[in-house]
């Protein structure tokens, strides 16, 4: 495998992109989970698909558009979708979770229309549904790298504000924190991370990478920083382990990554149970 990794550029792209996503997806996932917004990832991934379908559709009519990476249009849709969710959550103050199904179904509706206009599925689109490691290009890798740098910068610089807002929003605002702006910045970086993670694990599985590692670490971590650290560790183990397994067993990498993180979650739950039973 090492030899193959040195030889094939696509494998290098896949591993490097996977390692970066293994950091940023669980990192933002921690904040989403503790704020009970885990499903936002699902809503945004479906909006992203609509953007990618729109980009592929445009490529059909405008030849030069074919050279534009569809991920960028996906990111644009995802960003608009994230702001839309924030707005809806304000409109339905007492039914905040309504924002999720509205955006999710809207995204699928839009995506299906674009796909039908483009005369149905082609293999490109299929790659985005379930993820395709082979399809990751150098330009995709560049996009993931840039987004990783932005996400790390935002989370490090706004860490204490994000933490406080997640724990107790009302109190944070009383203390003079500008919650509204920080929310918008946060939801935008979530949108970007989802758009770039899609190529590895696909639309249908991207939210798993943001939530499963967190679900596992939250059971065993002491404190918030440790939860973040463990989530990233489990995310990395799933991505790297999943890619290696997929290579040797010749199975779909996206699914393998997600299954591996689900297995880690189950093992942690069982160990925790066993430990509690002992004491």
């Amino acid at each position: 495998m090492i030899q193959a990794l040195l030889k094939f550029e696509f494998l290098q792209n896949a591993f490097l992109a996977g390692i970066l996503i293994g950091v940023i997806a669980p990192l933002l996932g921690v904040f989403l989970v503790v704020r009970r917004q885990a499903l936002i990832a699902d809503a945004l991934s479906h909006i992203t698909l609509a953007g990618i379908a729109a980009s592929l559709l445009m490529g059909k009519y405008v030849t030069s558009w074919q050279f534009v990476n569809p991920v960028y249009m996906g990111m644009g849709f995802s960003a608009v979708g994230s702001l839309f969710i924030e707005q809806l959550r304000k409109v339905y103050k007492h039914f905040e979770e309504l924002a999720i199904p509205i955006t999710l179904s809207g995204g699928i509706g839009l995506g299906v229309v674009f796909i039908s206009l483009a005369d149905g599925f082609n293999s490109d689109l299929f790659n985005y549904l379930f993820g395709s490691v082979i399809a990751i290009s150098r330009s995709d890798l560049l996009a993931v790298t840039v987004i990783t740098i932005i996400v790390l910068a935002v989370v490090i610089l706004l860490y204490k504000e994000l933490f406080f807002l997640s724990f107790d929003e009302e109190h944070a605002v009383v203390s003079g924190i500008r919650g509204k702006w920080i929310h918008i910045v946060f939801i935008l970086i979530v949108a970007f991370v989802i758009a770039v993670s899609m190529q590895i694990v696909g639309v249908l599985l991207v939210s798993a990478l943001m939530t499963l590692p967190v679900a596992a670490s939250i059971r065993i971590a002491k404190g918030f920083k440790q939860t973040i650290f463990l989530s990233i560790l489990i995310g990395e183990a799933s991505v790297i382990g999943g890619l290696i397994l997929a290579y040797y067993l010749d199975i779909a990498p996206g699914g393998t990554i997600v299954l591996l993180s689900a297995i880690i979650l189950v093992i942690i739950l069982i160990l925790k149970r066993w430990q509690q039973g002992k004491s």
Partner: peptide, 10 residues
């Protein structure tokens, strides 16, 4: 998942 120390630091 927040420790007492982290809560007070807020």
């Amino acid at each position: 998942p927040a420790s007492v120390f982290e809560v007070v630091s807020m």
